[in-house]
Write a protein that binds this DNA or RNA. Structure first.
Lengths: 228, 228
DNA sequence: CGCGGAATTGATAATTCTCAATCAATGTGG
DNA sequence: CCACATTGATTGAGAATTATCAATTCCGCG
């Protein structure tokens, strides 16, 4: 019944993910038995709006975009789930449906725990609940930050922040944008055309370098931060 | 040492507040012993940026606005704490400073629990931690919703939503906006002038009625919801 | 090699901001 | 209780940013 020790994906789930950090070894083993994992190829859906939302979904490796569909059929980007990020909705509210979509942007490994198991886990492992509270708190800060930016800063400034965030934590000088311009646009609250123009503007001002369509190099991060 | 049974404010704290709901009677009594309470008059500050953030702050009665100060000295509204709402920052992250201000908008009663006590409470009362996770989850949903609106909808639409939210849950036909136009403006990501004009526009279209400067009446909530 | 989605570019329109002036409301001290 | 000061709200006119619509162009892929 138990997972094998060489089941790397299951290990990733409990090791990589912040909400499972600082847990006692026993608890980690418990978690491992409750977790199932799935693989998604680029473009496949982790879940869709209307699906029953009955489990916590954690990205063990890869990237997935989470977006909503508005009444007129337009996509609204919510966020990109990176390795270690999770989608909370399902685990938090009882018997709800997903109101958003999640789609893999590359080959992606996902861990899942059913809401029931997860709630029990929190009851039995307060450490775990505290971790969860911290993770949610961090997400709230992010969202408040993002809200402030959207209501305050110009598109050029928001785009600059986005480039800095996206490139952060990468060793590589040159980085690839995971999203299409259309998605970046709805994420930043603007249009693909404006993204195009502003990227060109930033390049002309010597702050970034366009390598290809979706590959860029940051040339002057200080100046990017100062925009607006 | 224990609180008296007639200490209404302390009771309010544990009874009104969602994160203390569904707790066993014993736990409620524990909570009551850990809580201190304070009263603030209109305009007084609950905390300021730079203050040590070492306790969870819960509004037992009244209203307070939470805002940040940008580099150039402009206020950016973050949210209005209503009765039962809390400011999490302090309780969640260790030894941090407040990066925002909270100011009472009317006579306001506040309950406080030190972070230390609150963390211990979560460890010992998993129910409590689960409540907290739920509360934070709800806040995340709100913020995501708000984000989507700001990036998607016109000012007129956002203002309409704001009016509907603000008036919701009030029996009274006529309601008073708790915030000054300046604050509503930064909250919605626009300017006081635009707020003024859009309110006039909504009134001209017969969707709302201006009673006075900050008193309004919703005439056609259906149409308000449909804007944009 | 050519098809098709994505990106770019251009021209124009719409929304919202900014700045400035005026007006209203609120509170204060004599 | 009134004149004055102060702060907030409104209105107008012009400017700026960004959206929209349309036309190419680019690029990956079968």
């Amino acid at each position: 019944m138990g997972k094998l020790a060489h089941d790397h994906t299951a290990e990733d789930c409990v090791e990589l993910v912040t909400i499972f950090q600082n847990l006692a070894k026993v608890d980690l083993e418990t978690v491992a038995t409750l977790v199932t994992h799935h693989h998604y190829k680029n473009g496949e859906y982790l879940f869709s709006a209307g699906d029953t939302a009955d489990s916590l979904i954690i990205v063990a490796h890869g990237q997935a975009k989470v977006f909503q569909m508005s009444a007129n059929g337009k996509e609204q980007m919510l966020r990109v789930l990176q390795t270690g990020d999770f989608d909370g909705e399902a685990a938090l509210f009882s018997n709800s449906e997903h109101n958003s979509f999640a789609q893999a942007l590359m080959d992606t490994d996902v861990c899942q725990i059913s809401r029931q198991d997860f709630q029990k886990l929190m009851q039995e492992t307060p450490e775990m609940a505290v971790n969860m509270v911290n993770a949610l708190g961090r997400r709230i800060s992010e969202l408040e930050q993002q809200n402030t930016e959207v209501t305050t800063a110009s598109v050029e400034s928001r785009l600059a922040s986005y480039l800095l965030e996206t490139s952060a934590g990468l060793d590589e000088e040159i980085f690839t944008l995971p999203l299409k311009k259309k998605d970046i646009a709805t994420y930043l609250g603007t249009t693909p055309e404006t993204i195009s123009r502003k990227l060109t503007a930033l390049a002309n001002q010597g702050m970034i370098q366009k390598i290809s369509n979706n590959k860029f190099k940051i040339l002057d991060s200080d100046r990017l931060m100062m925009i607006d």
